[in-house]
């Protein structure tokens, strides 16, 4: 069905307005990355400064171990994404479909882990990491990131499973699936939008974190991207050009991940499966 014109116009007006709001501050970051001489502020609205230069971008690749950090970050983020999705999709399923003892309490407890101000947990967390000998290891970082991302992912997956009718699994079980097979062949494909959000969120958690990374990683060659980027910032003498250029480059993989995943986000799958 075609929409009335005024609705179409309204849609585009809203979208365009927010696109402008979304990208303007980021264009400012681009602008900083193009300015010579590490100037964070400008006195006008121009995005491309008169004396623009790509020196900051060049320096990232030639003078800084940017690619090394990028590799580290990609590896950690990919690992966290895979484990996060795997653990959240199974746990969310249990919370959505089964009624078991301690279910509600556990769900709430999972939420509570997000409630303590993270800054206060840093000191004991470092003690823990140091005692377990996880300083300068990928494992320590991965466990922490997965644990950080999981509460949201588990709840999110549970919410998605809740929208999938139980009769589909029952049909599958009558068709000869075990509970596990029904989960794998029927439920999981239908929860794709949830999996995508979970994956995106896990990825972002690992991709942009630097406070814990600064505690765990004590060697520059082990740095993740955000940690490397934070190194461009020094009190009162930051290398804003590098900082901004790296921030822009850091966003590109996120955009790429989003692009590749977003088609799963928009294909409605459950539509038409059942009639309620």
């Amino acid at each position: 069905m075609r929409e009335p014109l005024r609705i179409t116009i309204l849609r585009h007006a809203v979208l365009l307005a927010f696109v402008a709001i979304s990208i303007y501050p980021v264009l400012n970051v681009v602008s900083i990355s193009l300015r010579p001489g590490d100037r964070l502020r400008s006195t006008d609205l121009a995005i491309i400064p008169a004396d623009w230069t790509l020196a900051s971008y060049a320096a990232l690749f030639t003078e800084q171990p940017f690619l090394r950090w990028l590799g580290n970050s990609l590896a950690v983020s990919a690992a966290v994404t895979v484990t996060g999705v795997a653990l959240a999709s199974t746990a969310g399923y249990a919370f959505s479909r089964f009624r078991f003892i301690g279910r509600r309490a556990t769900m709430l407890a999972i939420l509570t882990t997000q409630m303590f101000p993270a800054t206060m947990l840093l000191l004991p967390l470092y003690v823990l990491i140091a005692r377990l000998g996880l300083v300068d290891t990928w494992l320590g970082l991965m466990i922490f990131y997965t644990a950080t991302a999981l509460p949201f992912c588990v709840w999110q997956m549970k919410g998605f499973y809740d929208t999938i009718p139980a009769s589909l699994e029952e049909a599958a079980r009558i068709d000869g699936c075990t509970r596990g097979q029904a989960f794998w062949y029927v439920v999981l494909p239908l929860a794709t939008p949830g999996l995508v959000i979970t994956a995106l969120f896990s990825f972002m958690t690992a991709w942009s974190e630097y406070i814990v990374a600064a505690q765990v990683m004590q060697r520059e060659e082990m740095f993740t991207l955000p940690l490397g980027i934070k190194g461009f910032q020094a009190s009162l003498s930051s290398q804003w050009g590098l900082y901004a250029a790296a921030s822009i480059l850091v966003s590109l993989p996120v955009v790429a991940v989003f692009l590749s995943l977003s088609r799963f986000l928009v294909n409605g799958l459950t539509v038409g499966s059942v009639k309620e």
């Binding site: 009718p165 009769s167 589909l168 029952e170 049909a171 599958a172 009558i174 029927v186 494909p189 239908l190 799958l269 459950t270 539509v271 038409g272 499966s273 059942v274 009639k275 309620e276």
Partner: peptide, 14 residues
């Protein structure tokens, strides 16, 4: 060794 037809059909949408 049974087959079942559901009220809401429960067809696999994917």
């Amino acid at each position: 060794d049974i087959a079942m037809v559901f009220q809401n059909y429960a067809l696999y949408p994917h």
